[in-house]
């Protein structure tokens, strides 16, 4: 069997990192094992023709199933929660500024304040995603010993 197939198997194993961690932990080893076996079989039966068809099919499957798995994961919920949290925090900060500094804003300052608010929202969203993700991951790790069915 050519070395290229061994390299392809290692590359596929590395590509599995794009799946959500929970799915990868559950099925990653089996998927890598299946790919190695499918590679060997394709090589035995039809050589490069079969191997290239297998790679093309596996790549297409990887792209579509990664998307499905991420949508099924908590990421969309975390994204919405983070955006809501960031928007609420920034608007609360705006209200506080109005109370603390009741001077009217000049036209020149308005653009600067808008840009700063937008940057703050983006930074808050990123920070909230990181915090929520870490929190979810930690609770997942804590559950792991009882997660398996047997």
């Amino acid at each position: 069997m050519p070395r290229t197939l061994t390299v392809a198997a290692s590359m596929y194993q590395a590509a599995l990192l794009v799946y959500p961690p929970e799915f990868r932990r559950e099925f990653g080893d089996q998927m890598a094992r299946d790919f190695e076996e499918a590679n060997s079989e394709a090589w035995r039966e039809t050589r490069w023709r079969g191997v290239i068809a297998l790679w093309a099919h596996t790549f297409a499957d990887l792209v579509s199933s990664v998307l499905v798995q991420w949508l099924k994961s908590r990421l969309p919920a975390i994204g919405v929660a983070s955006a809501a949290f960031a928007t609420l925090s920034v608007s609360a900060a705006g209200q506080l500024r109005r109370v603390a500094l009741p001077t009217p804003i000049t036209e020149g300052d308005r653009d600067l304040i808008t840009v700063m608010l937008m940057i703050m929202v983006v930074l808050m969203i990123v920070a909230a995603i990181l915090v929520f993700n870490l929190w979810f991951s930690r609770s997942l790790v804590r559950r792991l010993p009882t997660h398996r069915r047997f």
Binding site: F27, M31, R33, A38, L62, S65, V68, Q69
Partner: peptide, 30 residues
């Protein structure tokens, strides 16, 4: 059956018309 066995059986049952990729198969099993 193990995962790869399921993929091969599906291929055989359907005369090669349905080829489940690993992501689709394990997503379905999940």
């Amino acid at each position: 059956r193990h995962g790869y066995g399921i993929r091969k059986d599906v291929l055989e049952q359907t005369g090669g018309a349905v080829r489940l990729g690993p992501g689709t198969l394990y997503g379905t099993l999940q």
